[in-house]
Amino acid sequence: MSETKKFLFVNRKAPYGTIYAWESLEVVLISAAFEQDARMAFIDDGVYQIAKGQDTSELGIKNFSPTYNALGDYDINKIYVEKESLEARGLTVDDLLPLTYEDEDDDWAEKDSIKVVSSAELAELMDQSDVILSF
């Protein structure tokens, strides 16, 4: 399979209340092995998936939020968060996990993976994708 497609993984659901966030992260990680151009979008309650300070010790479900930190190592570093969704929830980028990657084209400089984008920019991103997977 030499063909490379632009995959967009759309996340619109909060973690823990349902399993979608966790199992969708598993898909994203698997996709890395196929060397496709993977992007993630966090919209609506999906932004809560990458919120800082998750502690599930009392709940008894695995805290999978540290796994998002590993995305950069899998070359998944195009992570888009909708500005309108953050604002509607009283959040800013500082409330999100500081996801980073090392840019091999820039002497392995550490860079932010998260880009906060408007609805219009996200619409454009969808337009540019080849395959959209929703969970």
Binding site: I30, A33, I132, L133
Partner: peptide
Amino acid sequence: SGLGQLIEAGIQSERLVVFG
């Protein structure tokens, strides 16, 4: 089978439609 089958479906298909 594994999750890779979903990614492969995305690569090989001309349209991927999600129902949920």
